[in-house]
Design a protein around this nucleic acid. Structure first.
Lengths: 246, 246
DNA sequence: AGCTATTGTGTATAAATTACACTTTAATTT
DNA sequence: AAATTAAAGTGTAATTTATACACAATAGCT
């Protein structure tokens, strides 16, 4: 009887071995999402970073990321991370690229999907100030943990490209903004100087700015008019958006 | 004694259970690469598809893909698939996007990284004609297996965009080509008609075409001059490539 | 009241894009 | 050998788009 039981149990072991080897042979890998979260504050383009939690990268900063759960889509995971960190709302989120070098993570094979997100710093100052979470000037970013430097650079390049093709920048601004703020934003993202008159001409020609009949407050000079971006109108405009050329 | 052995064996089972649950709890997922392989033949843009190997998608076509091995990078996996299928050589390969909907694969969670590749059909007619592997006109693609329709459409859109920004199209042509062939290619990819004189002007102005002082053979009309693309010169040209606007 | 800093505005020039038609050439047919 | 065919090769004028640039108006500050 016991012999019989033993045999049964040994069969079970075989089954488990099979399962285990199957699990391995299916070639599964760990999958994470890393978010490159851009903000705009004090006329500088910023990126949100956290102190690395790995000893190996003790003094380095890293992007905000987490493993993707088995029952969670990729976009979903990115939204979750953003929500946890910034409180979410009206944000731009876009997949950038997937990074899958075999040894990109020191502990084990982890493939990561990078997402780029644009948030309005005014609206999201909430759950940011604790832990080791900080906004950094994009032009001061060097030597991030893991391959995050490369991920950041890829995302920043893509942002520069996208922002010339579509009016995304508005996600980074408060709802009401002056044309000077808008131009500062473009100059910060693209790291170039633009002609003020031509810049205005271009944006008015696009016809997505709504004059709010309000003016700036508390500026030590002639205040500018305030505008909002007509997102609905932009969405409706079926004519292909050919781009913003500078 | 047997009791003792039994206990040991039961402990082993526990261990296996732990391993199994660990493997699951690390949230690993299966990762695949799918290649959208474009070719150009008979003045049509084509995509290489294979008959689906899943019963569920028995009569449907699917992209060429495979699981990524644990010790294999993503680009590496894409090159491997291409090599296996077409014999490789001088090809354009670029990551497009990663698709990670939880239920995109009927059997289990499989996240897939899509790659776009451009090959020269003349050079690669090799190991293609067996199995259920065929070139399809891009404008006849409907209802692919899995979410491959979406992956294909995303890749095709990206190709249309890229080809306006960089002179990629040459990867799809033979080394020697006439300007008519080049224009046919652009018209096929973008699905538009172009003015012949302006098209020529544009490409000569780019200055990446080398006149081979040869002419077409076996055409029932005045033969055109043959050119090759000066890839090295294009690479060297440090001036940012601002794009090809039509 | 005067100073300061920035807003708001228009035009002339240069560059790029578009539209468009006739002559040339090799192969094929008669 | 002459005529026919089909596409190659070529330039210019008109339009659109992008660039360069300067001065008057305004609110806040002293």
């Amino acid at each position: 009887m016991v012999e019989h039981k033993l045999e049964a149990v040994q069969n079970k072991i075989k089954t488990f071995k099979t399962i285990q080897s199957e699990v391995q042979s299916i070639n599964k890998v760990a999958l994470s999402v890393d978010c490159v979260i851009f903000g705009f504050d004090e006329n500088k383009l910023k990126v949100l970073l956290i102190r690395s939690d790995l000893k190996k990268y003790q003094d380095k900063w890293s992007l905000l990321g987490d493993l993707v759960s088995p029952n969670e889509g990729l976009d979903e995971a990115a939204y979750r991370i953003l929500k946890q960190r910034t409180g979410l709302r009206d944000l731009f989120l876009e997949q950038v690229q997937t990074f899958g070098e075999v040894d990109r993570h020191p502990a084990s094979r982890v493939v990561t999907v990078a997402y780029c997100s644009l948030i309005n710093v005014q609206h999201h100052k909430l759950n940011i100030l604790d832990n080791e979470l900080h906004w950094h000037d994009v032009d001061s970013i060097t030597d991030l943990a893991f391959d995050h430097q490369k991920i950041f650079e890829t995302s920043y390049c893509q942002l520069q490209k996208r922002v010339r093709e579509h009016p995304l920048g508005f996600s980074l601004l408060p709802n009401k903004f002056s044309l000077r703020e808008l131009q500062n934003l473009y100059e910060a993202i693209l790291n170039i100087k633009l002609d003020r008159r031509n810049f205005r001409k271009k944006f008015f020609a696009m016809d997505f700015l709504v004059d709010l009949n309000e003016i700036e407050k508390d500026v030590p000079h002639r205040p500018g008019k305030l505008y909002r971006f007509d997102y609905a109108k932009y969405e409706r405009s079926t004519k292909k958006w050919t781009g913003i050329a500078f």
